[in-house]
Each structure stands twice: as C-alpha cells, then as structure tokens.
Amino acid sequence: MIEDLNLAAEALSEVSTEATTEKISIGEAAGTAVFGYAVVFAGLIVLMILLYCTGAYFKSKEAKQKAAAEAEKKAAPAIAAPAPAAEVKLAPGSAGHVKLFDVPDKEAAMIMAIVADKMQKPLNELHFISIKEVK
C-alpha cells in the first residue's frame, strides 16, 4: 500500500507532458484513490484551521469593541447629564440598537421591512441606527 501511495505521489509531483491514457493497475488505482481522498481531507482541514483562526480574530475584535462600548456607556452618565438617552425606546428584534423617536414599534418594523425589500438585502444584514418621525 505504501508503494502505491508513493506511486501516486510520484505521479502528482512528476512534470510530464505525456498523457496517461493507458490503463493503470488496480493497486495503483487503489493507491491513487486513497492518496486523493487524503489530499482532499488535508486541504480542507488546513482551510478549516485558517477559518478558525480568522474567526477567532474577528470574535476577539468584536468582544473588544463590545467591551469598549460598555465601558463608554458606564463612563457616560458620570460626565454627561442623564435624561434623553434614558427616554429612548429600543425596538425589539433588531439587536436592540435602533432608536425610535415618536415612532411606534409596529411602524418601525414595517419601515425596516420596506427598506430591506427595496434594497434587496436580508433584514438581519442591515443595521438601523434610528427612526424618527419628521413632523
């Protein structure tokens, strides 16, 4: 089996212009099949590791941003006067970020759905900062 694997590896590394249109032995075919399956696995495992690394980087970045935002929030009441921020209603279902000014929840949801539809984007990919009624 190891010999077959070597044969397959040699075939892969060999730079040859000659087309291999002849029949191959069953042993050689078994070796190539096992080696090929292993290459697919190895390639995708390395890709998986790369994705975990980038994922971990972005997760830690996101966590840092969250922590910074929380720290800012905590520091804010001590410096600025309280009032308006506390009165702002948070709309449910939109990660709690959208600020509503004189707009009922139902209307806000409808506006967000219409915007998502017009932009041809899924709603969960859009970030609404605030919705304000223009009087």
């Binding site: 087309a19 291999t20 249109t21 002849e22 029949k23 191959i24 069953i26 075919a29 078994a30 190539t32 099949a33 096992v34 090929g36 399956y37 697919v40 696995f41 390639g43 995708l44 495992i45 890709l47 998986m48 994705l51 975990y52 994922g55």
Partner: peptide, 29 residues
C-alpha cells in the same frame, strides 16, 4: 468551519467510483 470535514468526507464516492471504473477496465483518465 467543521462543515469542511463533511464536505471532504462526501468526496468518498469520487474515489471509490474511480477505483471501480479502473476495475471495470477504464483507463486512468
């Protein structure tokens, strides 16, 4: 990213059919 392992595993048929085809007399290509 673990999904990639399933994507890799599901290539088993490619290599088994390749082996089967050689056994049935087809050339490597």
């Amino acid at each position: 990213p673990k999904s990639l392992l399933l994507g890799a595993a599901a290539q088993m048929g490619v290599f088994l059919a390749f082996f089967g085809a050689v056994c049935l007399g087809f050339t490597g290509n």
